[in-house]
Structures are given as C-alpha cells and as structure tokens.
Amino acid sequence: MAAGGDHGSPDSYRSPLASRYASPEMCFVFSDRYKFRTWRQLWLWLAEAEQTLGLPITDEQIQEMKSNLENIDFKMAAEEEKRLRHDVMAHVHTFGHCCPKAAGIIHLGATSCYVGDNTDLIILRNALDLLLPKLARVISRLADFAKERASLPTLGFTHFQPAQLTTVGKRCCLWIQDLCMDLQNLKRVRDDLRFRGVKGTTGTQASFLQLFEGDDHKVEQLDKMVTEKAGFKRAFIITGQTYTRKVDIEVLSVLASLGASVHKICTDIRLLANLKEMEEPFEKQQIGSSAMPYKRNPMRSERCCSLARHLMTLVMDPLQTASVQWFERTLDDSANRRICLAEAFLTADTILNTLQNISEGLVVYPKVIERRIRQELPFMATENIIMAMVKAGGSRQDCHEKIRVLSQQAASVVKQEGGDNDLIERIQVDAYFSPIHSQLDHLLDPSSFTGRASQQVQRFLEEEVYPLLKPYESVMKVKAELCL
C-alpha cells in the first residue's frame, strides 16, 4: 500500500493539533497551500530580480507567473513527485505547466533550498508574528487579574506546605514575570531571523556568478533584492546548502521555554482548584465526569500541561538535527523538520489560546482563602504575639514557653481530632496574655502579614508589564474561544 493518505478522510490519521486544537490561522501558515504558494512567490521574486539585473526574462513571463501564483494543481504535483521522487522539481514542473512561456526560467540558477529553506524562514517569521500578540493578550488578562487582587491576602506555599502570606495578585505576578520573559525572547528570536537568500547549491553562489558572467556586484544585488522582497532586513552571508540548523534550535528553545512557563502556571491553577481557592472557567453544560456528576475538573489547565510537556520535548529534535548536518548538509534534517517545526508552533498556539481562555474567566473564592488563612495564621502570628507581650512588660522566655504549650495543644486538636485551630481562643482565655487581649485582632490582621506584596504588584505592572504590552494595544480586544 502506498504511503500517505487522504487526510480529510475519517479513515486516515490526522494530527489532533490540526484537527482538534490549533487555530485556523496557525494551521494555514503550515498548510501545503501556504507552503507551495510561497515557493511560487519566491520563484517570481527571483525572476523579477534577475530581470532587473539584466537576464533575458520578459515582462510577459513575469506576468504569467504572477497570474498563476494561486493556480496550484495539487493532484498534478503529487503525481509528479511520485514520478520524480523530488518535491521541488515536482512543483517546478507543475508551475511550468500553467506558465508555459515562463517554464524555462522558473528556478533559474537556484537549488531546492532556495524555495525550501527560504519558505521555512518566512513561515517561522509569520508563525512567530501570530504567537506574539496571543502571548501579549494572556499577559494582559493576567495583569488585569493581578491588579484587581493585588491586596487580597492568601496563604503562600513553599514545598506545598503553608508559608508566609502573600497576595493573590502577587502570586499571579510570578506567572506574568515568566511570560514577559517569554514574550521578550519570542520577539528577540523573531527579529534575529535572517533570510537564507540566493546562495546556490553549497552556499557559494557559483551558479549565479556564472549567470551574471562573473559580476560579483550583481550577485550581491540579486541576494539583497530577493531578501528585501521577502520582507527581511538581512540575509546570511555564510550558508551551506541550507541555512544553519542552529536557527531551528533557537526558535524551538524559546517555544519550549514558553511551554515550561505555561505548565507551571496551569499546575498552580490545578492545585488551587483542589484547594477550592480558584477555578478555571466551567461552562453551564460542561460535564466533569461521566460517573461523578459533582466533579469540576480543571480540564483546560490539564490540557495545557499535557501539550506543554510535548512542546518542551520537541527542542531535542533540532538539537540532534543540527549535530548531524555533515559538511554542507545531509538530508537527516528533512523529514524531522517537516514534523517538529509545525508541531512546535501548533502546540504553542494551542496552549496560548487555551491559557487566554482560562485567564479571561478565572474565578476566585475569597471566603475559602480566608478560612485557610484562619487555619494557619495563628501559628504564624506567634512571633508577633511574643513581641507584643514583651512590649507590655512580659518575659520573652516565659511567653515563648506559654505559646509553645498552647500551640501544641491547638495542633493536637487540628491533627488528632480534625478540629479547627483554636490557638487564639486559648490565648484569649489565658490570664497571662490579658495585657494584649485587646491587640489580638490587630495582630491577626492578614494584611499585616503580606509585606509589600501589593506595592510590588503595582510597581511591576507599571514599570515592566504595561510598557512591554504597549506595541500590542491594537490587538488586545480579541477574545479566545474554545470549541473543545
């Protein structure tokens, strides 16, 4: 049975990233139509530049190519590739079939990587351009969430054990800070992308030097003109047959890092959902379990974690691919890159769409948070109580021993009897502590235990987050809708 299948058929496997999760716009960027249309555009740009620099290419040939950029006979191309065992030459023939007058000058002087690699770089750039505003929107939604809850005390956790208090907004800023680093890295790697350009079979530009009869300047002009037509500021000066596969490492490393950030955020949300302090959106008709109707599973956060793990592992592909590119190139890269580049971007696209949807509907339960604080705060307040007693004339050592005994009794009630923490009640009825009984409410005010959390939130948002989001103001209103 021949390899390949009808990918629109229910009898043929289709990647869930495309069929179930990723956005239509990201799927289109990695589609065959987008790819092969870009090949034709690159052939047109090459012909236009070659004509401008004096090669015998007519206006009629150029116009014929322009008129057929979208006229792609995919069936013919597939048949040609089956016959020739070469995808680029299959599309040269297919393009030439609908451009008979231009057929002889299509791909003039070029090698397969002229269309293959340059198209990949265009796709990487455009895919990054799709991700950047999506990530900015996630940051914006979380920034709104953090600002609104900047002063809401909550129990902090280290080692997932109760620690000092923080605020809900401050905790959210930990998430935002990681995503801001990801946004900066995505922008950097996007701006650092260079075009492969017009380089020939081993990167020496020998074929173009021959076409222009040894004119170095025209060869350099050709490279520059096509690079500018493709919208790049610069091209690699040095290439082998391909652009260095280190570029793929750079791009997928940034995406993998984004995956790590999203995994951490969504894990926190899942843990908070278990504590009943916070939940992701839950639709009115949504079913959490087929057997347990009360369940409210954090399905979206779980999906993000599941896909983020996949995204983090994909960076190993370009690392290994770059390491086995012998001399000017081997074909070890080809099949692998067809999979890992598309999957990385479709996965990143999915987790950003999902995280935006989550961040637009996060639900906080202040009463649950308050109750958990009441359970733990008495123990945390013991040092403040000791200091207040010393100020009232008591002995630190005597007070410490009193607190120690009462704390152990209260802990026994919590752990052995399943009761509430009654340390404060014990202190309130103990005559030894009568000098500070009137101060206990103040000493137990949760806001006095959150330090500068709310001020940190305000400063972080104003100095770091809002300036970073400013270039994306025009796209901030787009909502994230999930079908599944």
Rank of each mutant, 00 (worst) to 15 (best):
I373R: 07
L135P: 07
T267D: 00
E401G: 04
H91E: 12
E370P: 15
N185V: 04
F345P: 04
T94Y: 12
P56R: 05
A381L: 09
L128R: 07
P446H: 15
Q210E: 02
H263A: 12
F460I: 13
Y294W: 07
V88L: 15
T347I: 08
K134A: 06
L155N: 00
L131G: 05
M387C: 00
N336D: 07
S395D: 12
L258H: 15
K224W: 00
D216F: 02
A230D: 03
R303P: 09
E64M: 13
Q61H: 01
F449I: 01
A392G: 01
Q164H: 03
V189F: 00
P446I: 00
M76V: 10
V465N: 12
Q205H: 06
V262N: 05
N357F: 15
H97N: 08
K391S: 08
V88F: 06
D398K: 07
A150R: 10
Q325G: 02
V88Y: 00
F208G: 08
L311P: 10
A78F: 00
L461P: 00
L255N: 14
Q416D: 14
R83T: 09
D445E: 00
V368R: 11
Q184D: 03
R309A: 07
Q184F: 07
L84I: 08
G116L: 04
G5V: 14
A78N: 08
T313D: 11
L132I: 09
H310P: 04
A77F: 05
S12W: 12
A110C: 04
V414I: 09
Q458V: 13
F157S: 04
V198D: 01
E25C: 15
H310C: 11
P100M: 00
L44D: 09
S23C: 15
V414Y: 02
F95Y: 00
K224P: 06
L423Q: 15
S261Q: 08
E64V: 10
N336Y: 01
G419N: 01
L174P: 01
F145I: 13
K199V: 02
S438N: 14
T166Y: 11
P16M: 00
P378W: 10
Y21L: 01
A348G: 09
V219G: 03
T267P: 12
E343Q: 13
L42R: 08
R171F: 10
M26I: 11
A410F: 00
S257T: 12
Q221I: 04
L130S: 03
D144F: 13
I176A: 08
F433S: 11
E425R: 14
T166R: 10
Y472S: 00
Q408P: 08
V168D: 05
Q286M: 09
L121Q: 11
F145A: 13
L352H: 01
M292T: 03
Q61N: 15
A103I: 02
M278A: 03
I427L: 04
F433I: 15
Q177S: 12
I386A: 01
L183C: 02
L331Q: 09
K415V: 07
L131H: 05
D178R: 11
S454C: 12
E280W: 10
V247M: 05
D87E: 02
S454E: 06
L352M: 13
L346S: 12
K295M: 03
N71F: 13
Q63G: 11
L183P: 05
S448F: 14
G361L: 11
D216Y: 08
L55Q: 11
A388S: 01
R404D: 09
A102F: 14
I369Y: 12
H93W: 05
S447H: 12
D129G: 01
K284Y: 13
F74N: 01
G8S: 13
K66P: 02
D178M: 00
M380K: 08
E370V: 04
C399Y: 01
Y365V: 12
S15K: 05
M312Q: 01
I269Y: 04
L84Y: 11
A102H: 04
P446G: 01
G8P: 10
Q184E: 05
D333P: 15
C113R: 03
L193S: 09
L42M: 00
R337Q: 10
S334T: 01
M389S: 13
C266T: 00
I287K: 09
F327T: 09
S447K: 14
K367I: 00
L484H: 08
V168R: 09
V364S: 09
Q177D: 01
R37W: 04
R141F: 08
D191V: 03
N71K: 05
K479I: 15
F379E: 04
F449C: 05
S412C: 05
L440T: 00
I106K: 00
A146H: 00
K82Y: 00
L461S: 14
E302Y: 01
K391V: 15
A291T: 07
G288M: 01
Y243C: 15
A273Q: 00
Q356R: 12
E343G: 11
A230M: 10
R37Y: 14
F212R: 04
K479E: 12
G418H: 14
T166M: 03
D117Q: 03
R372G: 06
N274T: 09
Q375I: 10
L44C: 03
F208V: 07
F433E: 08
T158W: 03
L355M: 06
D420F: 15
E401C: 06
P100Q: 05
L152R: 04
V363A: 10
V405L: 15
G200A: 02
K101E: 02
R85G: 08
D32A: 12
L131R: 11
I424E: 08
G169C: 02
I339F: 11
Q320A: 08
Q409F: 12
G214Q: 07
Q61F: 03
R303C: 15
I62G: 04
R329V: 05
M312W: 12
E473P: 15
C98Q: 05
L461W: 08
I287N: 09
F232R: 10
E473A: 05
E48R: 14
C173T: 07
V251F: 11
S261N: 03
P446S: 12
I427F: 04
Q51K: 03
N68T: 07
I237K: 13
L108F: 04
L186N: 13
N384G: 10
V413R: 00
Q285G: 11
S323K: 01
A146G: 02
G8F: 13
Q286C: 14
R270E: 13
R141H: 07
I249E: 10
T350L: 10
V115G: 06
I57H: 12
R459N: 05
H93D: 07
T111M: 15
Y466T: 05
S434R: 10
T204G: 02
D422S: 00
A102P: 02
K224A: 05
S334W: 03
V262A: 08
M316T: 07
T313V: 09
E213H: 14
H442I: 08
D422F: 15
L128E: 12
D398T: 04
E401W: 13
F449K: 14
N357V: 02
G5I: 12
L331M: 05
H437I: 14
E417N: 15
K233E: 08
V475H: 14
D441Y: 03
